[in-house]
């Protein structure tokens, strides 16, 4: 059997854990003779110049280099320190801020998983060089909007407008003076907090059902894909969370310890009692 230790270092391109063996030893010997006298005098140096002992052969080491970019869906969940979003439940209410609700969340998305459009005005300058992360990376209260800013789950993407589009008529209007202007009603009807966008023929999509669970009291499934949304707390924690889906326990950092995705494809697992091909010919 090749690869066994009796095949010795020959089987391995990087033999002996003395490392690049011969070369290291030559160097050590060189140093040894050059400072021979000194070494004899300074006992402490003794061990340093002693020839390296024979050590067992070993497999080729794993390069410590990163195995690749992190798996987003695994890594993102740990990106937000729970403490940063663990506000008291009534903090949002006490601030007098408008709550973020499922209705507004859905109104900005064409279908589940679609990138939300930008519901607010952008100055010409902002449109040319988007600096969305100024507000959307950390969140916090925005006096301009009287609301907590939603936090992006993927702040490393800087080309925000690649996926998130503003309404053309809002570009260039900047942030209106909410107190004085009638400009709001250009986009917002009196009844709606989110500007409506008329659509030709687009039925209301099937939004994931909230709170699906196996039994009473068991942790709800994750009803959506995790692509670009692996950082649970940005939507489910903190004052910027969507009110209906805000977690009661943002301090639990490892969300998927309890909440697992619920793909619908596979049903129950059962298996036949007998596998004839395995037991053929056997009798008690």
């Amino acid at each position: 059997m090749s690869g066994r230790p009796e095949d010795g270092p020959g089987a391995d391109p990087d033999p002996g854990w003395g490392g690049h063996g011969a070369e290291t030893r030559r160097r050590v010997l060189g140093i040894g003779s050059a400072i021979g006298l000194m070494a004899a005098l300074i006992l402490v140096v003794g061990p340093l110049v002693a020839p390296e002992r024979e050590l067992p052969p070993h497999p080729k080491p794993t390069p410590m280099a990163s195995p690749g970019d992190p798996i987003r869906e695994e890594w993102e969940v740990f990106r937000t320190r729970p403490g940063s979003v663990a506000v008291l439940p009534d903090a949002q209410a006490r601030s007098g801020a408008k709550p973020r609700t499922l209705a507004t969340y859905r109104a900005l998305r064409a279908y589940p998983g679609a990138p939300p459009r930008i519901p607010h005005g952008l100055t010409e300058d902002e449109f040319r060089t988007p600096r969305c992360n100024t507000c959307h990376e950390r969140g916090g209260f925005s006096p301009r909007f009287g609301a907590y800013t939603p936090v992006t789950p993927h702040p490393e993407f800087r080309q925000c407008l690649q996926c998130h589009v503003p309404d053309g008529q809002m570009v260039g209007i900047g942030f209106p003076d909410r107190a004085a202007s009638g400009v709001c009603l250009q986009c917002h009807s009196l009844a709606r907090t989110v500007p409506s966008i008329p659509l030709a023929d687009w039925p209301e999509p099937d939004w994931p059902q909230i709170g699906q669970r196996a039994m009473e009291g068991s942790p709800p499934f994750i009803p959506h894909d995790l692509h670009l949304r692996g950082n649970c707390l940005v939507c489910h924690g903190g004052p910027g969370a969507v009110a209906e889906i805000r977690t009661t326990h943002p301090e639990r950092a490892n969300c998927r310890q309890c909440h697992v995705p619920a793909p619908s494809a596979e049903g129950e697992f059962t298996r036949p009692l007998d596998r004839e091909q395995i037991i053929a010919g056997k009798e008690p």
Binding site: M215, S218, P219, Q257, H259, F269, L273, E276, E283
Partner: peptide, 28 residues
């Protein structure tokens, strides 16, 4: 964890073995 929270459902799988079986002519 997710296993503990769903653990009791393991009692009720449809292919649960409920009777003793003896192999005769290769079949249980």
């Amino acid at each position: 964890c997710v296993k503990g929270y769903h653990s009791v459902q393991m009692l009720y799988g449809r292919d649960r073995i409920t009777r003793a079986m003896v192999r005769r002519n290769g079949r249980l």
